[in-house]
Design a protein around this nucleic acid. Structure first.
Lengths: 196, 196
DNA sequence: CTCATAAGTCATCGAACGCTGACTTAGGGA
DNA sequence: TCCCTAAGTCAGCGTTCGATGACTTATGAG
């Protein structure tokens, strides 16, 4: 028996909710499921979060926009791929939060969240790199690639991409990013003081 | 009042089911929704299809693998993009069937369907074109792009890609496909006897 | 027209859903 | 130790879900 601790209980609910919502989507997840997973009474969900919807919003709120903008510009795409491929997303049921949220994309709220996140994390950052007339379109095309890689990895589970690490993708990333952005792009992220 | 016609009623149910399941996913769609949309009594769903699940299977059964393999090999990717971007998917609620099925990807059955479809439609066809050591990986990377473009268009609804026609993407498709496959690829589909 | 049959309707089931208000219990300050 | 308060429990509400079986009605063959 654990001690009574409001914040710890809240955290356990949030963690279980994140995993359930990621793996099974909003509709297929019941508040009773989340309560059972976390070993917490279901009614506390409403006491602490108000409603299932508000729990979803808080559980899937992207608390972690990784430091994509830090580092050399020519490594931006490589850093994006690393967050999609190498990052540990076990907190989100092992799937990239964006891919996970696609499962709940029947609801307009979730769609807007996805839209905002994709634009903020990928398109906006890439548009600056893509110079020329249709910079927006090329930035979106490269963003589409990132999202597609995430989808094929964790939803479609296609053989080669599922097992691939970011390093395996590096040469291809460099080629495509360079071709699409019209400027030389690196496929790998330079690690300070790390042996090559 | 329309005449009693088993096949016509079945077809109306299938059509309504396709649109509902595509737009809102499996869980957010109730058999009563489908019945209301099609103006048919809900119990006929179980009489004609057995269960909601079997209706879903039949409604989303890909009856249309477009003739992707017909035509010049160097136009294969361009043909794929056309089916994603230019094809009229109003029968599926205006969204590409694969993207629509992603909404139901919480269920393992749907995931397997998606996996089979992606592999059959995209990866298998592209692997032949990608010569060299990691042909499989490059085929999957290009497939990921196709899927990602579909997702950004209809789920994320990013501005430039949503409005784009296949012709707008042509030069970029040619560039990326050529770079990834290591052989010259066309960005457009040559139309027989059609003025350029 | 008759009427057997197939097409469509109706009432309703049990289970699961999100959610609520009244209740019980643990735990630290006095 | 007492006891007030906050943390956690419990029974159950109203609704909706997928699904069933008995019923009614239209329709075409004879």
């Amino acid at each position: 028996m654990q001690k009574r601790d409001r914040e710890a209980t809240r955290a356990r609910l949030l963690k279980a909710a994140r995993q359930r919502f990621a793996r099974e989507g909003y509709d297929a997840t019941s508040v009773r499921d989340i309560a059972r997973d976390s070993g917490v009474d279901a009614t506390l969900i409403f006491r602490y979060f108000g409603s299932k919807k508000q729990l979803f919003d808080q559980a899937t709120a992207a608390d972690l926009p990784p430091d994509l903008l830090e580092g050399p510009r020519e490594e931006l795409v490589a850093r994006m791929v690393r967050t999609v491929v190498d990052h540990d997303w076990t907190e989100y049921g092992g799937e990239h939060p964006l891919v996970a949220m696609l499962r709940s994309s029947a609801h307009e709220d979730a769609r807007q969240r996805i839209r905002k996140e994709v634009c903020r994390t990928y398109v906006d950052a890439l548009r600056d790199l893509a110079e020329g007339e249709d910079a927006e379109l090329r930035a979106e095309l490269l963003s589409a690639w990132m999202v597609g890689i995430g989808v094929l990895r964790s939803v479609v589970a296609t053989p080669a991409l599922s097992d691939a690490r970011a390093a395996d993708l590096a040469p291809h990333i460099a080629t495509v990013a360079t071709a699409l952005l019209g400027r030389p792009m690196s496929g790998t992220v330079d690690q300070k003081g790390e042996p090559g």
